[in-house]
Write a protein that binds this DNA or RNA. Structure first.
Length: 489
RNA sequence: CGGGGUGUGGCUCAGCCCGGUAGAGCACCUCGUUCGGGACGAGGGGGUCGGAGGUUCAAAUCCUCUCACCCCGACCA
């Protein structure tokens, strides 16, 4: 019985859903738009979280936790931010249920338990956090305040897809306060670099660092920096954002500090976040028609040892010895002794679940003093002598990590296309996809018109973008630089 | 919020048009034979057919209401 995964070429969206399901990353739940993250999916998130958390700590941040609920009056305080999220907020209006007298065993909302003030389920935590920071910050000596929170947030999305867009998702949100604009700006860029570093070195997912245009900017931010990745179907994925918030929240929440000259000043702020959406990006960057492909650094299981039975007893000793040696080298490995599944089934199963390296050991190997090592990224199999297999695998994991990045980067680089006419723009978008590098006159009107005509949006203005005289691909007006367009998730 | 679709064992679905007391494959349990790329045989357990109401001697099937989920669009990380 073949466990069918829809080929990418046939239906990319169905392929993605098949991977999520067959690799056992997540299930749909009884709640609309919310998924259950299964142990394998959650283990990937834990690995991401652990790596990022280390990077945050290394850059001087500490973790804290703020409430899930935000009183509506606080939420309203920063106007632009509130408006940006208003139409996708879940709101708590009551605090009690009671028995339904007309239907036995049913419960109804108790009308007598209406809240004086509604509570917004956080779509992001700026409001509650800045309301708190007001009390924490008195003096320039309290700055910078560098806090991160690991939390869940809720955004009532119309249409959802596992990991890429769900009504509830897990993320981290950093919220920092600084004495000067320059410091806050530096922090914004520092954390953008942390994200880019993480994406490329752990996820093996190449990203472009850039700045959002006004229409794509986070409501309440002065500037939104982002990392943009390219998926295999030619669509872009915003993988992380870092916002320079200026003094918008400080003014809305009256967060002032006394500087060394004994003068009151508003603080400068940043916020930055990545979410479980990264798992969607991970899937769509590396996986193939046989299933999930994971970079070793994030794979919950890096090496699996599969015995070829009949010789089970003979194999056990060798397998366990290799397993112990791998573990002592810090590798996440497992020896699969389940004798109710055939080895062929296990091969297919572990490939589908994205385990980077498989070691098979059978009678023939015992006789020859070898093992068979198969790598998931290229599906290549190599026979290796037993006494060198641990060293080989340690190096192979690193090689796979590199290969995945190189492969993804080559695909990404081949899918950045310079275009100079709007016909060419539309043609490339439809036939090739990917990022389109084109001149833009800098106006929201043109951006909107292009979006209406093609569904492509400006993903970002890359950092360190070369300045180059040209004319806008749509309006023909003068332009000083190219920006990156793409259809986006 | 519009348009479409689906709810029947854990999963995928048949049965519904034409009412007669629930089936297949997979998965699961037991035993045996197997095992270098998704094994086979025999036996076995499991479903008040999404929910409520109605028609009928009789409802998974017909009627009414309702709930949920999925897909497509507008919105968004």
């Amino acid at each position: 019985m073949a466990k069918e995964i829809t080929p990418r070429a046939e239906d990319y969206s169905a392929w993605y859903l098949d991977i999520v399901k067959k690799a056992q990353l997540a299930d749909n739940s009884a709640v609309r738009g919310c998924m259950v993250i299964k142990p394998t999916g959650y283990a990937i998130w834990e690995n991401m979280r652990d790596a990022l958390d280390r990077m945050f700590k290394d850059t001087g941040h500490v973790n804290a936790y703020f409430p899930l609920f935000v009183p509506k009056s606080l939420f309203e305080a920063e106007e632009k931010n509130a408006e940006g999220f208003a139409k996708e907020c879940a709101v708590v209006t009551h605090y009690r249920l009671k028995a339904d007298t007309e239907h036995k065993g049913k419960l109804i909302v108790d009308p007598a338990a209406k809240l004086e003030e509604e509570l917004v389920v956080r779509p992001t935590s700026e409001a509650i956090i800045w309301n708190t920071y007001r009390d924490w910050i008195q003096s320039y000596r309290d700055l910078p305040l560098l806090i991160n929170q690991w939390a869940n947030v809720v955004r009532w999305e119309m249409r959802t897809r596992p990991f890429l867009r769900t009504a509830e998702f897990l993320w981290q949100e950093g919220h920092t306060a600084h004495a000067t604009s320059e410091e806050a700006r530096e922090e914004t860029v520092r954390m953008l670099n942390v994200y880019a570093d993480f994406a490329e070195n752990f996820m093996a997912m190449p990203v472009i660092k850039g700045v959002k245009t006004e229409s794509e900017r986070f409501a309440g931010a002065e500037d939104t920096y982002c990392i943009e990745a390219l998926m295999q179907d030619g669509k872009a994925l915003q993988a992380g954002t870092s916002h320079f918030l200026g003094q918008n929240f400080a003014k809305a929440f009256e967060v002032k500090y006394l500087n060394s000259q004994n003068q009151q000043e508003y603080v400068w702020a940043t916020s930055w976040g990545v979410s479980t959406r990264l798992i969607g990006g991970l899937i769509m960057t590396h996986s193939d028609d046989d299933g999930l492909v994971l970079p070793p650094r994030l794979a919950p299981l890096q090496v699996v040892i599969v015995p070829i039975p009949t010789t089970g007893d003979v194999v056990d000793g060798v397998a366990n010895s290799i397993l112990d040696n791998l573990k002592s080298r810090g590798i996440r490995a497992k020896y699969d002794t389940d004798d109710t599944k055939r080895s062929g089934f296990k091969f297919a199963e572990y490939e589908m679940r994205g385990v980077p390296v498989r070691i098979a050991i059978g009678k023939r190997d015992i006789e020859n003093n070898t093992v068979e090592v198969a790598r998931r990224d290229t599906k290549e199999k190599t026979v290796i002598s037993m006494n060198s297999v641990v060293e080989y695998v340690v190096n192979l994991l690193e090689e796979i990590q590199q290969n995945l990045f190189n492969r993804a980067k080559q695909y990404r680089d081949e899918h950045i296309t310079n275009v100079d006419t709007f016909d060419e723009f539309k043609n490339v978008l439809e036939t090739k996809g990917g990022f389109i590098s084109a001149h833009w006159d800098g106006t929201p009107e043109t951006e909107e018109a292009i979006k209406d005509a093609t569904k492509a949006t400006i993903r970002c203005i890359p950092l360190d973008n070369p300045q180059e005289q040209g004319v806008c691909v749509y309006s023909g007006k003068p332009s000083a630089q190219r920006v990156l367009f793409a259809k986006a998730y």
